[in-house]
Amino acid sequence: MAKKEHFINKQNDSMISIYQDKATIEAAFFQHSVLCQTFLPYRNPGDEVTMWQQKQGKAQLAVSCTPVLNPATDKYELAGIPYGTKARLILAHINTQAIKTQSKTIDVEDSMTAFIKSIGLATDGRTIREVKEQLRRLSASTLSVGFIDGARAVQVDFKIVKAFDLWFPKDDSQRVLWPSTVVLSDDYFNSLMLHAIPLDERALAALSNNAMAMDIYSWLAQRLHRITPGKPQFITWQALKDQFGQGYERMDHFKEVFRKTIHMALKQYPNALTRVEEVPNKGYNLSHTQPPILARNTIQIETQ
């Protein structure tokens, strides 16, 4: 209960801060637009799973894990599919550093621990191990983004990370040991420069215990400002379940969780509070509003 109360207080404090002080682009975190529409798993799909797939509208995402060489065994091993809140936060941190420095080479050693503290995560051994595990999984993953257009399929594949030391010492007792740098692949870096979505750091920190809430917030941040003013877009419950309903077989269970979770996300996006309305028994109407943070670039991928 204490942990739950901590996150509730964190969300309330963040909401007040966001209401009082509008974020600037200089204080933004960034996520790739593709991962604001299709998402990583909420939970571990299984260490033996080699590919994760998700569809949203015309866009489809596949995340594949590639073998990595373990120096302890002198064999290639599968790192697994990245998942959960920490994978999302790590990726946002790496994206942000790349955009702010305009460099494919990210200084992880000096920035990762400070980042973990800045979003309010504990820096105990367990958290550090979980962050390192997700960093390893992200580094060994390949993203495939596809779009169906009639009888044609257009697909782009790219690795996020091109090179870095994937294996860490198991002893975390002395100090936090991160690799010195992460090098992003040319394809991912160039795509990120064109399709980065700015998000409020305070919102991500407040939602850092709930992967679905982070995804809903990111989705609304890239979606609402693209809607034509005065022409709301309707999203069915089935479309929402396809997009956010990982692991939910029954629609009524999904609806119950989604209603609570979208409320959490909207508290961190004040402009959208009155722009997202449930249509009883049908779905939601989305109306135009400004994004959480104004930016020069807007995404170019249409999904629904």
Score class of each variant (00 low, 15 high):
residue 7 F to Q: 13
residue 11 Q to P: 00
residue 15 M to F: 04
residue 16 I to C: 09
residue 21 D to H: 15
residue 38 T to A: 14
residue 50 T to D: 14
residue 55 K to E: 15
residue 56 Q to S: 15
residue 57 G to P: 05
residue 62 A to T: 11
residue 62 A to K: 11
residue 63 V to W: 02
residue 67 P to T: 04
residue 67 P to K: 01
residue 68 V to K: 12
residue 68 V to W: 04
residue 71 P to Q: 06
residue 71 P to Y: 07
residue 78 L to Y: 14
residue 85 T to N: 15
residue 88 R to L: 13
residue 88 R to Q: 12
residue 92 A to K: 01
residue 95 N to L: 01
residue 95 N to T: 02
residue 98 A to P: 13
residue 99 I to E: 13
residue 109 E to N: 10
residue 109 E to Q: 13
residue 111 S to P: 14
residue 116 I to K: 00
residue 123 T to L: 02
residue 124 D to Y: 01
residue 127 T to K: 02
residue 132 K to A: 09
residue 141 S to V: 01
residue 141 S to W: 05
residue 142 T to E: 12
residue 144 S to I: 01
residue 144 S to T: 10
residue 148 I to L: 14
residue 159 K to R: 11
residue 160 I to V: 13
residue 163 A to P: 00
residue 170 K to E: 15
residue 178 W to V: 11
residue 180 S to M: 02
residue 180 S to G: 01
residue 181 T to S: 11
residue 193 M to T: 05
residue 196 A to I: 04
residue 196 A to L: 06
residue 206 A to N: 03
residue 208 S to M: 03
residue 211 A to P: 11
residue 212 M to R: 14
residue 213 A to T: 03
residue 213 A to Q: 05
residue 219 W to P: 08
residue 230 G to Y: 08
residue 232 P to W: 06
residue 239 A to W: 04
residue 240 L to C: 11
residue 242 D to A: 07
residue 249 E to W: 09
residue 252 D to H: 08
residue 255 K to V: 08
residue 263 H to T: 14
residue 269 Y to N: 12
residue 277 E to L: 04
residue 277 E to Q: 15
residue 281 N to A: 08
residue 285 N to Y: 14
residue 289 T to A: 07
residue 290 Q to T: 11
residue 300 Q to N: 13
residue 303 T to A: 07
